[in-house]
Amino acid sequence: MTITTMETKLKFIHGFSNKIRLQILEAIKFEEKTVSQIVEETNGNQSNISQHLACLKGCGLIVSRQEGKYVYYSLRNAKIHELLDMFDLVLEDVENDVACCQNHVD
């Protein structure tokens, strides 16, 4: 793997590495939503959610579309949905180890 490919991969994974970004991805996993809907579902604030949406969009994980005065956000494609599902499946196998891991404490 080249250094450029590794750096790109790290940027991609970074999109998943934040609690709020992960909450946003889960919120739009099954249907597109507006910023207001995402804010309500995640109990966040609009400014913070908007920053994380920009990050997710920049990482290529989500897309947006404008309809009138509303912007709707959704997962980029079914592969992102599958990846979120795969995280859950893998987590089932390693959950106890992850929970006990002392290397990644907040």
Score class of each variant (00 low, 15 high):
7 E>C: 03
9 K>D: 07
10 L>S: 12
12 F>R: 14
12 F>Y: 15
12 F>T: 13
13 I>G: 04
13 I>S: 08
15 G>E: 10
15 G>P: 13
16 F>D: 07
18 N>Q: 02
19 K>P: 00
19 K>C: 00
19 K>T: 00
24 I>V: 10
25 L>S: 10
26 E>K: 14
27 A>V: 09
27 A>H: 08
27 A>Y: 04
28 I>F: 15
29 K>G: 03
30 F>E: 15
31 E>V: 07
32 E>I: 00
33 K>R: 15
34 T>I: 01
36 S>R: 08
36 S>Y: 05
36 S>N: 11
37 Q>Y: 01
38 I>L: 09
38 I>P: 13
39 V>M: 04
40 E>I: 06
40 E>Y: 10
40 E>K: 15
40 E>D: 12
41 E>F: 08
41 E>G: 04
43 N>Q: 11
43 N>K: 12
44 G>V: 02
44 G>A: 10
44 G>E: 08
45 N>P: 04
47 S>D: 09
48 N>K: 07
49 I>G: 03
50 S>I: 08
50 S>A: 08
51 Q>D: 13
51 Q>C: 09
51 Q>W: 13
52 H>C: 02
52 H>A: 00
53 L>N: 01
54 A>G: 08
55 C>N: 08
55 C>Q: 08
55 C>D: 11
55 C>R: 08
57 K>L: 04
57 K>C: 00
61 L>N: 05
61 L>F: 11
61 L>M: 05
61 L>E: 06
62 I>T: 01
62 I>P: 01
62 I>D: 02
63 V>M: 12
64 S>K: 07
67 E>R: 04
67 E>Q: 05
67 E>D: 04
67 E>A: 02
68 G>C: 00
68 G>R: 01
